[in-house]
Structure formats: structure tokens, C-alpha cells
Design a binder for these strands. Structure first.
Lengths: 256, 256
DNA sequence: GATCACCGTACCGGTCAGCGGGACGCTGGG
DNA sequence: CCCAGCGTCCCGCTGACCGGTACGGTGATC
């Protein structure tokens, strides 16, 4: 389940429900739309949204409400993502410069991967991912490598839940997926071939925690079928991920 | 004023007060520390922080509280910053690849510049800026160019307020600053020479709104005195900023 | 230009979520 | 041993929050 109900009997619960009603590609939502999405009474949304505006978490435009810059600031202070991002940037940078293909950094959250960074040039392949966005673990290279280097129980959790089909190539058979995960664990790389979007392929390698058997995050390179062969970039991606791993384990940035 | 009091007689106000108690380089704050910073009663902080945890805006660790990954996700959905970032990345990317110096993207908020993106390699100069962080407008190249392309009233507002001295080179005389702003407006570039941090220099150019007389954002290149001469990069920075300007004005991403 | 659907805004009295002073147990340092 | 500082919990008071309802504006449809 994406995220549980969030207590609607409390102001705070209503507030975050409203905030979370915005998806990655909503620019601005009208009051009515917020009412529709949240299921809250109109008067309530009106009031709470107003409070959110005075508290600078929302902006008011003549078209409706929109997540504010203050929220962006706050989000960038989230310790784990922030320090991961700062450590990772130089590596992602290098990787991009050597490949000139789209480079991703992501972490796992439940059954999804959350993208922490995405860098690409003017001619980048049109990927469905966005920084701060989510994708199901089972249909992306990043997701697979993260899952391969997760606790067996969460791995099993995902394998035993229904696997949404995103494209004709999406792997929906748990058995096949499990074999790929084992291979990924063995090789330290995972692949994706048009499983999240038609026309795209991807390689990913894990950023490992101290012990070396759990992934903190993962790095990937994505490109269009045709000019791009995932196998050709295995070494580079792996090198970047390993470099970051060893740098990260020399710092504190983990735990729960 | 950075941000006004935020109504403390409301749950929401207390909640954001607690969230904003975290600065860019706080990893984790104890309950007691939060009490100290917010001035709220201990019992209240304890309860509200608890609520924030159940609503996934804070994480609980054995050392204290910390801004959660959910908050990061939310922040990345802030429309203005997000779309700006997406449009800008390829340009920042190019700029970095041609200079191999630290590249920034920033917007103005009140008397501060807020950094939206920062990219640099392994050998980057050690800058005080961080993505999501703030710096005073008057002591950075980005800040100066943003101010030069702002409404005259806000420009005057800043000029007539006390200018904090950050380094021995920080410009604290309003007259001198004003002359630099005029020059910046004329040339479409601003410079900074060790005014925010000793040993660093910087060039910045504006990302202009449709009309061409107001800046939406600004791009800069920063490097260490010695190997780095700001003048040498004027053309590149300006080109990147102009490219982004024309791209941005072909989209909707402005207003208040 | 009348009707209607849908929007954003405003009102207002009942009630329960939120409040915070204070007490408690734990820990570590002097 | 004591004390300072921490996190947690209790509990009765009260005003912040609630949301049904009503109102004015705006655009499409006939």
C-alpha cells in the first residue's frame, strides 16, 4: 500500500492529506479539485488550505493552490536524501559526462523507488521518472537492484504481491522476477528492457551499506533502445556505485 | 524579515515551527533541542512531533527527530522549483561540462537567494551554499544579478537595510552596491569576489521572464581564486542563462 | 436573458481535540 | 549520592476546529 490513511480526525492529518493530493505533475489544483481528491468537506478544505497558505506551505494563485517554495526548502533539508545527494552528485556527474545518457539516483520506499536525482542533457531520452517521483520497484533496473539487496522478507513481500503491468515487457511473473533478482545479487547489476516504458533500457548498480549486503540507494544509466546498449555501461555504473559506497560508509547517514 | 512568526495558537503553526527549526545542516534534533529552538512547551513539542511522525513528515530515531523522506518527496513537487529545475538541468549540465567548476541555480526570496540546484565534481571548490539553502542577496553574484533584475522597490528595500558583513570583502556600503547593481543590469552579468566566502569568486547571469526586464532565476559559476577567473566565463554563463530564458518563456511557470 | 451547474467564500454554534503545567523514571557526571 | 537534564505520561479546562448551510459570481446551454 502506497501510504496508509493518515488520521483525518486531526488538523495535521487533513493538512498532509491536502498536501499529498498534489502529484508530481500537478502544477496547481483548484479548491474543488482538492475536495474531490481528498474527500474532505468543502468548507474544511477551504479553511485548512487557507491555513496552509498563511503557514507558507501552499501558494495561492488566481487559478488555485500550489505547493510553495518554502516546502521545497524544507524538503531539501531532509537529512538522508540531502546528504546522499551531496555525496552522490560528483559521481553522477562523472557518469553523465562519460555516457551522456540519463543518470538516476534512487532509494527504495516500500514497493516503490523514489528518485532522488536525475541528470540528463538536452538530448536525453524521455523517461517517465522525475526527481521526487515514484515508480514500482519491479519494473525498473534501480528497483530490481534495490530489491535484490534488501532484507529477504521485504523481497518476499513484493514478490508475493500482484505485479502491475506497465508495458508489454513488464515482468509480472514472480518466478522470473525472482531469478532476475538472484542474478542481480550475484552480479551486482540489474537490467531493465522496456519494462517501465517502451523504448527505454537501463542498467543499475547498488550503493552498499557498511556490511556490503544491503543497499542504501542505487545508481542507474538509462537510454533509448537502438543507440543504447545497457551491457556497455555495466563497468561505469558499477564503478560509480562502488565509489559512492565507500565514500558513504565513511560517514553517518543511515539507520531508522 | 526572514519569515514572520507563524501563528502559534494553531496546531499547524506549531507543526511548521517545529519543522522549520531544522536548518540545512542539522541531521537530527533531540526533543530538548526542539523545545529550546521553538520556545514551545516541552509537552506540546512532544505531542506535535509525535503527530508529525505518524503523518510521516518526521522520522524518529534513537537519537531524536529528523526530517523524513516523505517531506523530500513533497518538496520536490513544489511546482515552480520543480519545473524550473527540470528545464534548467541540461543547461547547468552543459555549463559544468565546459567549465568543470561549481554551477548554481538560484531564485530570490525576500532578502535571500535560495539555491535550487548545485552541481560540481569531485574537485569542486568548497562553497558555503547548499541546495535548498539560503544566502544573503548582497554578497553573492546570483543575489546581485537577481536584485538588479527585480522591481526597483525591492531593490531599494534591500539597499536601505543593514548589509551583513560575511568576509572582509563583503560590500556593506549601499552606494557601492547600487553602482554594481546598475552595472549588472547594463551588462547582464554580476560578479562576486570573495564576498560570501574567502577564496571564492563567482559570475552570474539572469534567467529572464517574458518581458526581459525581470529575472525568474539566475545561473552562476563559482571557482577558487587562483585558477579561476570569473571574466573568462561570462560568455558561457550568459549563453546558458539566455538559452534557459527563451525555453522558459515558451512555458507557463511564473506569476504569484 | 433565463436557467442551471459549479465554483469560491463566509457564517456560526456545538464539542472534542488540543493544550500545557506538572509529576515521574531514567541516565550520566560530578 | 545527588542533581541536572532528558524523554514520557497524566488529566482537567477551553477555545480551535468542525462542517452543514447559505450566498454571490461566472460560464455553458438552451
Amino acid at each position: 500500500m502506497p501510504h496508509e490513511p493518515a488520521d483525518l480526525d486531526t488538523v495535521l492529518g487533513k493538512a498532509v492529506t491536502i498536501l499529498r493530493a498534489f502529484t508530481v505533475d500537478d502544477q496547481v489544483l483548484s479548491l474543488a479539485e482538492l475536495v474531490r481528491r481528498t474527500g474532505l468537506p468543502k468548507a474544511t478544505v477551504h479553511r485548512v488550505a487557507g491555513d496552509l497558505v498563511t503557514n507558507r506551505l501552499l501558494d495561492r494563485t488566481n487559478l488555485g493552490y500550489r505547493l510553495s517554495g518554502g516546502l521545497f526548502e524544507l524538503g531539501m533539508r531532509a537529512s538522508v536524501e540531502r546528504s546522499l545527494l551531496e555525496l552522490a552528485m560528483p559521481f553522477l556527474q562523472d557518469l553523465y559526462e562519460r555516457t551522456h545518457e540519463t543518470v538516476h539516483l534512487g532509494v527504495r520506499e516500500g514497493h516503490d523507488v523514489v528518485y532522488v536525482a536525475k541528470i540528463g542533457g538536452h538530448r536525453q531520452a524521455k523517461t517517465p521518472s522525475r526527481p521526487g517521483g515514484r515508480m514500482p520497484v519491479h519494473c525498473t533496473a534501480i528497483g530490481k537492484i534495490l530489491l535484490a539487496f534488501s532484507d529477504p522478507e521485504v523481497q518476499q513481500e513484493v514478490l508475493s504481491s500482484p505485479l502491475e503491468r506497465r508495458t508489454p515487457h513488464t515482468i509480472v511473473a514472480a518466478g522470473l522476477l525472482e531469478r532476475q533478482l538472484n542474478a542481480a545479487l550475484e552480479n551486482g547489476v540489474a537490467f531493465e528492457r522496456e519494462e517501465s516504458a517502451v523504448g527505454l533500457q537501463c542498467v543499475a548498480a547498488p550503493v552498499l551499506a557498511e556490511g556490503g549486503d544491503r543497499a542504501l540507494a542505487a545508481i542507474s544509466v538509462t537510454g533509448p533502445v537502438g543507440r543504447f546498449r545497457p551491457e556497455a555501461h555495466v563497468t561505469l555504473v558499477r564503478a560509480a556505485a562502488q565509489g559512492l559506497s565507500s565514500l558513504a560508509s565513511r560517514r553517518r547517514s543511515l539507520s531508522s
